[in-house]
Nucleic acid binder design. Structure first.
Lengths: 139, 139
DNA sequence: CCAGCTAGCTCACCTTTAGTAAGTAGCTTT
DNA sequence: AAAGCTACTTACTAAAGGTGAGCTAGCTGG
């Protein structure tokens, strides 16, 4: 098993103070890796999108939350906001170079969940089954 | 600039349906990568911890949220919960093999934020300065 | 000339989730 | 008998998020 090796590598990479509440990188991570923030960036990996395209692509997001999260990402310098002064105006969002560099680790994380979703589902089912047996045994 | 290359690599790795609201991996990612879930796993990378140790280590978390998130992670099969029936009882939490494999991409993401926190802080400051100038110009 | 259409938001209202503080169990030490 | 320890719950409150309606501004069809 290579588990311990991976753990050691991960440990050395880990920023020492991410667990400290006053750490700036933790505050920024909280702002960016929200429920919708990661999905918006994931959608923009495929290329620039307009507001309504993102609204359709990021399934389930409300316009309010899309607008709010885009503002945060633009302010953080991860996303560009380009307005074409046509009528009605066309607003296009795209990743900045910094946003692109974030896309790599973020995509690996998403990829991990794609690979391990079924494993987690099984673990959850097993856990629930065991809990059910225990509560049944108590009666 | 290698931005486009990174983007292409990221695009191919990206699970096709993470943006779909019915996708199971998205539901699971929502459960695990919460504000505290990532930090708890990050803390456990360094080795097993007891409840009170985690409470001290993950700065700012309440006992309620620690308990709740640990339950979720245990149910997902990412964290082990071992009870020593001493008095008072000692409960030790540690990463499962699946938890260890998640630690790798998660650590890379945390590492990215460690590297780019200052860049984002600058971008935010620049963005706010520009907004201030614009609103000043309007008067 | 003016109602209607469009994209990209913004606002008011309500529900769900997270945070705070206090309480609980069972046993030990003082 | 009183206080403390660990690992939690529970009740209450604050913040985040969801829903649906409305707004802007100019162009187009009637």
């Amino acid at each position: 098993m290579t588990g311990d090796d991976e753990l050691a590598v991960a440990g050395t990479l880990l920023a020492a103070d991410i667990l400290d509440r006053t750490c700036t990188s933790r505050a920024i991570m909280d702002q960016v890796t929200t429920r919708w923030g990661t999905l918006i960036i994931a959608a923009l990996i495929k290329g620039p999108h307009r507001f309504s395209q993102l609204h359709a692509r990021v399934d389930g997001i409300s316009q309010k939350m899309l607008s709010h999260n885009l503002k945060t990402l633009v302010r953080a310098g991860l996303v560009n906001r380009d307005v074409e002064p046509t009528v009605p105006p066309q607003v296009t969002y795209s990743l900045t170079p910094m946003g692109v560099s974030l896309a790599t680790p973020l995509t690996q994380l998403i990829h991990w969940f794609g690979q391990n979703a079924s494993g987690i589902l099984e673990a959850q089912a097993g856990h629930d089954r065991q809990a059910g047996e225990l509560s049944a045994a108590r009666h």
